[in-house]
């Protein structure tokens, strides 16, 4: 299989500096056809700057962006024609109705008029299509933004924090729309978020960016595999217990006064317990602790970063 024809987004050493501050640092994104690529990172990590470079809104200081295998800098009009986007807060003209807002884009791009009704139907705004957008709720504005992104029947959609500021119902709706894109329309999606739970529920691939650097990029399953449960053992003398277990080949660590054993240890709960008791330890608690993706994310990004 030729990987190049399947690569929807590829960045090579993408870098953006503001003065001496490096906001995006040597990022090599790879988004394949048909994926929902979750672009994850804390606020200020460089997500939006990266996305703006993908859309040609700002220029890279170094490196390049390939969309559909073609250089953005040379084929801007052509490749942007196949992409729908929603960058940060929704964009709209408040004095115009939802329908008129989409009409500006339809006219600009010379699209068929009936596409407007189709996408309004998709995001379920048909009922409110002829009201001025300034009266819309945030969730409705966001859905209108997604409708605008879908208007030109794109091959790929880039959504920057599409659930930001939405209530749970709004988040659910947007999530559903994202999930439907590859399934029903064959659209590849890149969606960014600072919330792991958001990405976890939709993404097939994940890229994690922190401090401008891409620190993880693989399928969500790889990320999940990292989350195998660990065993937490509480005894009165953890130091002595650690020495005992290490002597038997278990990788035991002490954290917060308890012993922690890695992944595979879970199957040997009974054996470990017996060893400890026979050696005279009082075991007050043994439990399997699942690492959430949140924990893994924190490990990857460094603990000082709050989400």
């Amino acid at each position: 299989m030729n990987t190049n024809t399947n690569m929807m987004i590829e960045t090579k050493h993408l870098t953006r500096r503001y003065g001496t501050r490096v906001v995006v640092d040597d990022v090599n994104l790879q988004v394949k056809k048909g994926e929902i690529y979750g672009f994850l990172g804390p606020n200020g990590a460089g997500k939006t700057t990266t996305i703006r470079m993908l859309l040609g809104l700002i220029r890279p200081s170094a490196g390049e962006v390939l969309l559909f295998g073609r250089e953005l800098s040379r084929h801007r009009m052509e490749v942007l024609g196949k992409i729908g986007s929603l960058v940060e807060s929704p964009s709209y003209y408040g004095h115009l109705t939802g329908h008129e807002n989409l009409q500006t884009i339809q006219k600009l791009l010379g699209l068929k008029k009936n596409r407007i009704d189709e996408v309004l139907e998709t995001v379920r705004l048909t009922k409110d299509a002829h009201r001025p957008v300034k009266g819309y709720s945030l969730g409705m504005k966001q859905r209108l933004g997604i409708a605008a992104a879908l208007l030109r029947d794109p091959e790929m959609v880039i959504l920057d924090e599409p659930t930001n500021g939405l209530d749970p119902a709004g988040i659910h709706e947007v999530r559903q729309l994202i999930l439907d894109m590859p399934r029903q329309h064959g659209i590849t999606v890149l969606v960014s978020s600072h919330l792991l739970s958001e990405i976890d529920q939709v993404a097939t691939q994940v890229g994690i960016i922190n401090g401008g650097r891409l620190i993880f990029q693989d399928s969500i399953d790889v990320l999940r595999r990292e989350s195998r449960p660990r065993l937490r053992v509480v005894t009165e003398r953890p130091g002595a217990a650690q020495m005992l277990l290490r002597g038997q080949g278990h990788a035991a660590e002490i954290e917060a006064g308890a012993l922690w054993l890695e992944g595979g240890a879970a199957e040997n709960i009974g054996a470990i317990n017996r060893e400890l008791v026979l050696a005279g330890h009082t075991v007050t608690r043994i439990e399997e602790v699942k690492r959430s993706l949140e924990d893994i994310f924190l490990d990857l990004t460094g603990k000082d970063v709050s989400l």
């Binding site: 703006r52 809104l57 992409i83 960058v87 807060s89 964009s91």
Partner: peptide, 13 residues
């Protein structure tokens, strides 16, 4: 007013 530049200029225009 409402982020129109980024939407407008990310279009193939």
């Amino acid at each position: 007013q409402s982020g129109g530049w980024k939407q407008w200029l990310a279009l193939p225009v």
